[in-house]
Nucleic acid binder design. Structure first.
Length: 565
RNA sequence: GCGUCUGUAGCUCAGGUGGAUAGAGCAACUGCCUUCUAAGCAGUGGGUCAGGGGUUCGAGUCCCUUCAGGCGUGCCA
């Protein structure tokens, strides 16, 4: 798991520190000064591959002008045995370092040695982390918002795996509670209306008005006929609820699999009720003095735990609230199943809940000390079609569903587009996503991969196979385009680290665009076929490394890497 | 009101712990295919980083404040 960027950065720091000590010993700089220096990668390639602000940061303490400090450092700098072949003073006092050929060779060796797992780091150290995402209500179909949540959750999980965590993907199925009752009532009403006409029975005021309920009722009638018409309402609702849930859950599984998402577990909310775990959890909080009774309901004293308001746990009608069940569910995740870290991917309409809930989880009675619960809150998706906003609303039944979307655009395009930004407000332009041309960045990246495959195959036909990294001469890779390409390749492990820390897989998407861009520029500026053999083999190896990394990262995001386009 | 997210090019967005001349894609315009895939490349134009203060060698980035917008603030989930 080589992270050559990190190693190089550390080298700059230690080389500079040694140079300072040597200069101080020689009397060129004042001794004993501790400098908090920063090493970064200059935007402009003219300023080298790495730069340190050591002289700028230390100048004041040393009571010398920054360029003079930098000059003294440079005079005492020894690059022997390092990745660097050159250092110079520039600008207001930066010390700039330039890579030598050995470093380029090392990068290609690392990619070859690690193959499909190149970029992997061990930040997670095998810790168990659960990513819970989508968890759409089984009372309806999945929306564009779920499409985004699906990609965000799945790609975050993938990035965490690459960062060394043991990841579990989970879908929480809300197959109990108020919404499910409304769902059953709505289905029942539609069923009766189908048989006896729309005026036969009133549709529940706060029921689900969507077309999908009609279709579900029709399906029920096709399966069971009119036999349930004369049944007692309560029993009929129970049958219809079970029928509707089973159908919708199966549909969600199918749609998500089509979208490239597979879960380790579909966790049923009802199981928490059936096992008595909700009741036990509430009792735990009550015994610990976190609750009180008011107006016939049982309340959680959440303000005492740091929340902004109290929450009802058990309603006056005796039913537990979603809030109570959610506490039980999270206790199950951490205490029963032993996850060290849990990430919940939620829509922005849940962020108030997330803040309150985080406060609740600090209650010592729940036994979650040392555990981490993080929320990944995404802003809602704004859908554009024909340049106008399409309102997404489940209640009106007018939403565009995930399966509608996948009928329009490819899984690759959808996954790339929804992974374009971290969690903030996202504008999804349907017309743009549908277009299969260069305006769509996914094709820019895939095209680079296809181009490479074709190029390597063509050379192979002519007898030029890709050589081992140890057998090529990396010193041939001297042009600006080649150097930029290798540097981008070397940056993947760092990119994975940042993406994993920030739960931001969109970084990988942007990395792919950058890498594809570097390759296209290289391809336009240089040729491989027909060059002198040393150069040909070095460039061919570079090309093959780029191909491997593009494929690797595309697959990480659940996007295909086509060999032809 | 309070909480929270957001405000960077005409549009959509990047900009680790503060660093050199604020970037990319799209859109507009101009070039480049007898040579490994033109779904590509090169170039031109485009900015009060929402406004105002502050911190310092140095601020899009940190602090304070004002303004504008999304979401939340249910005995819903």
């Amino acid at each position: 798991m080589a992270n050559l960027m990190e190693q190089a950065r550390a080298q700059v720091l230690s080389l500079t520190q040694k140079a300072y000590e040597k200069a101080a010993a020689a009397g060129a700089l004042p001794p004993g000064v501790e400098v908090k220096a920063v090493v970064d990668s200059p935007k402009d390639a003219k300023n080298g591959d790495f730069a340190t602000s050591f002289a700028l940061a230390g100048a004041k303490l040393m009571k010398m002008p920054p360029p003079a400090v930098a000059k003294a450092l440079l005079e005492n700098l020894d690059l022997e045995g390092s990745f660097f072949q050159k250092a110079e003073v520039a600008g207001p006092g930066f010390l700039n370092f330039t890579f030598g050929p050995s470093w380029y060779g090392e990068v290609l060796k690392a990619i070859e040695a690690e193959g499909e797992t190149y970029g992997a780091i061990n930040e997670g150290q095998g810790k168990k982390v659960m990513v819970e995402f989508v968890s759409a209500n089984p009372t309806g179909t999945m929306t564009i918002g779920n499409a985004r949540g699906g990609v965000l959750g799945d790609a975050t999980a993938a990035v965490l795996e690459r960062a060394g965590y043991e990841v579990w993907r989970e879908f929480y199925v809300n197959d109990a509670g108020n919404q499910v009752e409304k769902f059953a009532l709505s289905l029942e009403a539609r069923y009766i209306q189908l048989i006896q006409g729309e005026d036969a029975v009133a549709f529940p005021e706060d029921g689900y008005h969507g077309q999908d309920i009609w279709e579900l009722a029709k399906l029920f009638r096709e399966t069971h006929g009119d036999a349930y018409l004369d049944m007692e309402s309560e029993a009929r609702q129970e049958v219809m609820r079970a029928f509707g849930l089973a159908h919708n859950i199966a549909k969600m599984k199918t749609d998500l699999e089509r979208y490239g998402i597979r879960y380790d577990q579909w966790f049923l909310e009802s199981s928490l009720h059936e096992s008595g775990y909700v009741e036990d959890t509430v009792k735990l909080l009550t015994d610990a003095g976190h609750t009180y009774e008011k107006d016939g309901a049982l309340w959680l004293n959440n303000t005492a735990l740091g929340g902004d308001k109290d929450e009802v746990l058990r309603r006056s009608n005796g039913f537990y609230t979603y809030y109570a069940v959610d506490i039980a569910y999270h206790r199950n995740k951490f205490v029963v199943r032993g996850f060290d870290k849990v990430i919940d991917v939620l829509g922005a309409d849940h962020h108030g809940h997330a803040l309150r809930f985080a406060a609740t989880m600090t209650a010592p009675a729940l036994g979650m000390e040392g555990k981490t619960l993080d929320f990944l809150i995404m802003q809602l998706v704004q859908l554009l079609q024909d340049g106008k906003e399409v309102k997404v609303s489940k209640r009106s039944g007018k939403s565009i569903t995930l399966s509608d979307l996948l009928d329009e655009i490819s899984v690759d395009a959808a996954r790339f587009a929804f992974n374009a930004k971290p969690t903030n407000h996202l504008v999804f332009d349907l017309d743009l996503a549908v277009r299969q041309d260069s305006e769509n960045p996914v094709y820019y990246v895939q095209y680079a991969h296809a181009r490479l495959c074709s190029l390597i195959a063509r050379l192979g036909e002519e007898g030029f196979g890709v050589k081992d990294a140890g057998q090529i001469d990396a010193a041939c890779l001297t042009s600006e385009e080649e150097r930029a390409l290798v540097k981008t390749l070397a940056g993947l492990p760092e990119e994975i680290r940042y993406a994993a820390r920030a739960y931001d897989p969109s970084r990988v998407g942007r990395y792919l665009i950058a890498l594809a861009g570097d390759f296209h520029r290289f391809y336009s500026a240089h040729r491989i076929k027909g060059e002198a053999e040393e150069v040909l083999y070095a460039r061919l190896k570079l090309a093959d490394s780029v191909r491997a990394v593009l494929s690797n990262c595309l697959k990480l995001l659940g996007i295909s890497a086509p060999e032809k386009m």
